[in-house]
Computed example of a mutant assay.
Amino acid sequence: MPVLVKLKNTRETKGFSQNELARRTGYSLQNIQKIEQGRAASITFEALGRFCKVLECQPGDILEWLPDDFDDKIHLPPATSEPSEEEIAIRGNSPKRTKHQHQTRMMIIDGNKGVA
């Protein structure tokens, strides 16, 4: 999954237990555990906002994007353009990828629904 939920790290850094975070946000302990264990299918903007308010942090302290593959990390231009010398040096002599070879997965964050 390209989006990592770092709620546990942020919560522990701020000195909160799971029980305290659940109590202050109004979410159940089971929902907090599900999110922290990576078993939640999604997190709503409302939930993210509650976590940020209670933990006094930014969404980026809780969520982190992880690229699916090497090309995502170096932000290559579309396969139809020629790579720069720097991109060739980083990628080596591997063949260019077509735009159909890239797959994108994301965690859905829906402000209209509760924590799943």
Rank of each mutant, 00 (worst) to 15 (best):
P2Q: 11
V3P: 01
V3Y: 15
L4H: 03
K6V: 09
K6C: 13
K6P: 02
L7M: 03
L7F: 08
T10H: 00
T10N: 00
R11W: 15
R11N: 07
T13I: 14
T13W: 06
G15Y: 07
G15W: 00
F16Q: 09
N19P: 02
E20I: 04
L21E: 09
R24P: 04
T25G: 11
G26H: 02
S28Y: 10
N31V: 05
I32M: 03
I35M: 06
Q37I: 00
G38H: 00
G38Y: 00
G38E: 11
R39T: 09
F45M: 08
A47P: 11
L48P: 05
G49Q: 03
F51M: 13
C52D: 04
C52E: 10
C52Q: 08
C52R: 04
K53H: 10
L55N: 02
L55Y: 13
L55W: 11
C57D: 03
Q58C: 09
Q58G: 02
Q58N: 02
D61I: 04
L63N: 00
L63E: 06
W65L: 07
L66Q: 13
P67D: 02
D68Y: 05
F70W: 00
K73D: 07
P78D: 12
A79N: 06
A79F: 06
P83Q: 07
P83F: 13
P83W: 15
E87Q: 13
I88E: 13
A89S: 11
A89H: 07
R91L: 14
S94E: 15
S94M: 06
S94N: 08
K99Q: 15
K99R: 06
H102Y: 15
Q103C: 14
Q103V: 07
T104D: 03
R105M: 01
R105P: 02
M106F: 14
M107E: 01
I109L: 12
G111T: 06
N112M: 03
K113L: 14
A116F: 04
